Simulated scan of single mutants.
Amino acid sequence: MLKTYHGSCHCGAVTFEADLDLTQTSYRCNCSICRRNRFWPAVAKPENFRLLTGEDDLTLYVFNTKKNHHLFCKHCGVRCFGIGNETPMGTMYGVNLGCLDDVTDEELSRIPITYVDGRDDRWQSAPEFFTHL
């Protein structure tokens, strides 16, 4: 069931709302960017994500195929969300669960996690080792 959550970057310049179902899987990936910044996203459809403040405070980083948009607060460096432009569900927002302001530790501990092997482009498979993600 969708519930509206509020989130922000560390300095508060970027704020957002997202309608998420935290009983659905979230993702941990071993690709070069997710592993380095420990990104832990839940998926939101575009109509279920609203950037409230800080559009001008975001900086965009793209690499490799340039399909995905990695957005960071240019003040504190936190990645609140990213945009996947060519995914099996079409365009989607990956909302960083660590940036949600109104979710409890208990709720976070119950969110299912799917581990994906992005490093080797085996997106439908878990990497051999994943507990460190």
Rank of each mutant, 00 (worst) to 15 (best):
V103N: 12
R110G: 02
D101P: 00
L2T: 12
S125M: 12
C76G: 00
G84Q: 03
F81W: 05
P127T: 00
V14D: 10
W123S: 00
F63V: 02
C34I: 04
L108Q: 09
F72K: 05
R79Q: 14
D121R: 09
C99M: 04
T25P: 05
H132E: 15
W40I: 00
G90L: 03
C80G: 09
T104W: 12
C34R: 10
I33D: 11
E86Y: 07
S26C: 09
D56G: 07
F16G: 03
A44R: 03
V95L: 02
F49Q: 15
P46N: 15
T87H: 01
C29T: 02
F130L: 06
E107K: 08
N68Y: 07
D101G: 02
G82E: 10
C31F: 02
F16R: 11
K74L: 15
F81R: 05
S109M: 03
P88M: 03
R36N: 14
N30G: 10
T59F: 13
L133T: 07
Y5G: 02
P41F: 12
G90I: 01
N64Q: 09
M92G: 00
V78A: 09
S125Y: 08
Q124F: 00
V116E: 03
C9T: 01
K3L: 01
G118Y: 08
I83W: 15
L71A: 08
C29Q: 00
H6V: 01
L22R: 06
P112C: 05
N48Y: 11
V14T: 07
K45Y: 08
L60P: 07
T114P: 05
C80W: 10
T4R: 13
P112W: 08
E106C: 07
F129G: 07
G98H: 14
T23H: 07
E17Q: 13
T131A: 12
E55W: 11
F63C: 05
D56E: 11
Y61F: 03
